[in-house]
């Protein structure tokens, strides 16, 4: 499916034109800084790789960046009403959702994959770095679809998204093994583990389940987002 470059261009400008964009910077900087610090001080990789890569990289950095970007591409336009400019055009709603999804996935993938690649190289090797980057990119795609839909379902997508990341993935994912099947973080770990197997990361979900669930979640979220956008109802405070 071709991308509507005008929507993509406006979305990207909207994303980088807002101060909210600065929120994307601290986490990658922190991640790389921690890895550099550990490397320089000569701490054994086995001691810090797991908490930095998994605990910060995949459990926090990737979902939080995806949340900021994914809710920013559509949610902020719904918030300030500029969405009306795009909706009052004879465009299929799928075309709009698709363009916004690609921008969100691309920006999230780059912002998360680059620092994770650097960390991977510092931990072990270029291969490990590439594995982390590839897993982050796939995770970015799935998360973007989820958070894009979320911004059409809730007036407070960031809050709901944070609850999902912190409570469902962060807390329950560690305590109740059943929730892992519905955790994007777990799929991402599995991908990283399969692409570049190391002793630092272990996937708790099988690769097959990860692939199937990633595809299902992405497709269902995007499809439902299109449906929601078709019935987009303007908020009329004055009615």
């Amino acid at each position: 499916m071709p991308i509507n470059t005008t929507i993509a261009w406006m979305t990207a400008r909207g994303l980088f034109g807002r101060r909210r964009f600065l929120l994307l910077l601290p986490l990658p900087v922190l991640l790389v800084a921690l890895a550099v610090f550990a490397r320089v001080t000569g701490i054994n990789s086995g001691d810090w790789a797991q908490p930095v890569v998994n605990g910060l990289g995949f459990a926090v950095l990737l979902p939080v960046i995806a949340l900021i970007v994914g809710t920013g591409v559509l949610g902020s336009e719904i918030d300030d009403g500029t969405i009306v400019h795009i909706l009052t055009k004879p465009l299929s709603r799928a075309e709009i959702v698709w363009a916004k999804f690609l921008v969100a996935s691309g920006v999230t993938a780059l912002t998360a994959a680059i620092p994770l690649y650097v960390v991977g190289v510092l931990v072990e090797s270029v291969r490990f770095g590439l594995g982390l980057a590839a897993a982050a990119a796939i995770g970015a795609v799935v998360y973007s679809a989820v958070f894009l839909l979320l911004s059409l379902l809730s007036r407070r997508p960031v809050l709901v998204g944070l609850l999902y990341v912190l409570i469902w993935e962060g807390l329950l994912g560690n305590l109740v093994s059943g929730t892992r099947v519905l955790s994007v973080e777990q799929y991402t770990l599995t991908y990283a583990d399969k692409i570049a197997p190391t002793e630092y990361l272990t996937g708790n979900v099988s690769l097959t389940v990860s692939i199937i669930m990633s595809v299902i979640i992405t497709v269902v979220c995007l499809g439902y987002a299109v449906l929601r956008l078709r019935s987009f109802t303007a908020a009329s405070e004055t009615s």
Binding site: M10, R13, G14, G17, D80, G81, T82, V84, H85, L87, T88, K89, P90, L91, S92, R93, R230, S231, A234, T238
Partner: peptide, 22 residues
Amino acid sequence: RNPAVYRHLGLVSEREAVHGFL
């Protein structure tokens, strides 16, 4: 639910929402 009508229709909404950065 019919985006095709926007070929013949223009809307200037009340909320003064513009992309100020353009």
